[in-house]
């Protein structure tokens, strides 16, 4: 798989480490969220067959975190964004 890095251009997926569903960006507030909410965040996954937004880390590159939109049935990648931009667009400060 080739990941089209927004800054570095096409890079082999081998250079990256995979973390998982991009919903991991939306971590609940540990001080206010209950155990059930945190349990759901940490352990449960939608795990769709089809389009999936996921976090990839460019470990052997510029060490940026990316949100890759990829189809889990065909492995086709349709969108690559910097995770920072995605987090900010969802209201996070960084």
């Amino acid at each position: 798989m080739i990941i089209h890095h927004p800054i570095l251009g096409p890079r082999d997926a081998q250079e990256f480490v995979y973390l998982g569903d991009a919903s991991l960006i939306d971590r609940p507030d540990g001080m206010t969220a209950g155990v059930e909410v945190f349990h759901d965040y940490l352990y449960n996954r939608t795990n769709p067959a089809g389009e999936h937004q996921e976090l990839w880390y460019h470990e052997q590159g510029d060490r940026s975190w990316l949100v890759v939109t990829r189809n889990t049935v065909t492995h086709e990648i349709t969108k690559v964004e910097l995770a920072r931009d995605v987090a900010r667009s969802r209201g996070r400060t960084k």
Partner: peptide, 13 residues
């Protein structure tokens, strides 16, 4: 392979 997949086929790495 290490990434979510339902494809029943993997990649070369």
């Amino acid at each position: 392979d290490g990434y979510n997949s339902y494809a029943q086929r993997g990649n070369l790495p």
